[in-house]
């Protein structure tokens, strides 16, 4: 199932609606990398609220995605990771590295706005 990507101002919001297969995730990665250029987006928020599992593949893919988005000039904020999922990820030894995180979509938007007010430069 394709993840819908919404454009809101300078931001793109990808909100995952159902469980993701590896193929879905790679497809999301490709579309986001492309659309960031098309819409000249300054940041991307990926909402993972519905995900009940984040394994090594998903984490690796999201991390690589954030890195390539940064090269395309956009910041990435990952929001909505569930407490149990966060716990399992750390037990597994997974980290999102330098990718910014926030509790939910609202917090993610707030984080980006605050960064903008501080002088344009986005979360790294």
């Amino acid at each position: 199932m394709q993840v819908p990507i919404l454009k809101q101002g300078d931001y793109l919001i990808a909100s995952v609606q159902a469980v993701l297969t590896d193929t879905d995730l790679l497809e999301l990665r490709d579309r986001l990398t492309e659309q960031v250029g098309t819409y000249r987006a300054r940041a991307v928020i990926i909402d993972l609220t519905v995900l009940d599992v984040m394994d090594s593949f998903a984490t690796r893919t999201l991390r690589a995605l954030a890195q390539s988005l940064r090269l395309r000039g956009a910041a990435t904020v990952i929001v909505g990771i569930q407490p149990d999922v966060a716990f399992a990820m750390t037990q597994l030894g997974l980290q999102l590295g330098s990718v910014a995180t926030a509790l939910d979509l609202e917090e993610g938007l707030e984080l980006l706005r605050r960064q903008e007010r501080r002088g344009g430069s986005h979360v790294r």
């Binding site: 999922v85 966060a86 995180t101």
Partner: peptide, 8 residues
């Protein structure tokens, strides 16, 4: 690390 994944 786990807290950070929740943005805290």
């Amino acid at each position: 690390d786990a807290c950070r994944l929740l943005g805290a």
